[in-house]
Simulated scan of single mutants.
Amino acid sequence: MNILVIIPAFNEEENISKLIRKIQEIKYKNKVDIVIINDQSTDETSSLCKKMYVDVLDLPCNLGIGGAVQTGYKFAALHNYDIAIQVDGDGQHNPEYIESLIEPILQGKSDMVIGSRYIEHQGFQSTGMRRMGIWYLKHLINILTGLKITDPTSGYRACNKEVIQIFASNYPKDYPEPESIMYIKRKGLIVSEVPVIMNEREGGESSINFNRSIYYMIKVSLAIVFDKIRKESF
């Protein structure tokens, strides 16, 4: 199996080297490659990654998380990877769970697998405001689709070749995680979760502040509802 870890990164010089080292040090059953999608960082993110001899795609302009992640899927599709795994560049996603993420795909039980911190409720559980948003979104997705996802905002996920091709062609742009779940569900594919333990960000700053959180909830809610309407209309 050809497996690729996609790491979108924007100004993650405080975290990225440690994350890459962790991924490289773990002995996986399958060979795991890494590609860094450098989203126009203004710090040393790109140069640090290149010094560690991993593939780096330096974007010519800042595309945001959706555009950066889709670039990773385009890279995966171009190079014919069987499985792609999203891992955030801030170090919150523990690479020890990569094999747990891909196992349901290897067994043919799932097309996309999400790493959820809310199955066993261990480790970093995010901020209070974000937990409220997650609670709201998981119930909205459940009401509209019947799908029970405990951690719809988790960017720690693995996808098979079919999902790679879909995301390479079309991927939500702003705060894409919940919307992409709806999209894959609409395609008739299987989405599942496995428990993971996440870490708190060690350095740098999150791009999500109070104002962005409000925008996030409104934008994602509308996107999810419109996706449901689109499915019923066609």
Rank of each mutant, 00 (worst) to 15 (best):
C49Q: 11
K50M: 14
K50G: 12
K51A: 12
Y53A: 13
D58L: 00
L59A: 04
C61M: 09
N62I: 02
N62W: 04
L63P: 03
I65T: 07
V69Y: 05
V69P: 01
T71S: 13
K74G: 10
A76S: 09
A76C: 07
L78D: 09
N80Y: 13
D82M: 06
I83M: 10
I85L: 07
H93C: 11
H93K: 10
Y97F: 14
S100R: 11
E103H: 07
K109G: 06
S110N: 10
S110Q: 13
M112G: 04
G115N: 06
H121V: 09
I134S: 03
L137W: 00
G146S: 10
K148T: 08
T150D: 14
T150R: 14
T153S: 07
S154N: 12
S154H: 10
G155F: 06
R157S: 09
R157M: 12
R157C: 09
N160T: 01
I164F: 05
Q165T: 10
I166T: 04
A168H: 07
S169C: 10
N170V: 06
N170L: 14
Y171C: 07
K173T: 11
D174N: 11
P178K: 05
E179L: 07
I181H: 08
Y183N: 04
K185P: 00
K187A: 14
G188S: 09
L189G: 10
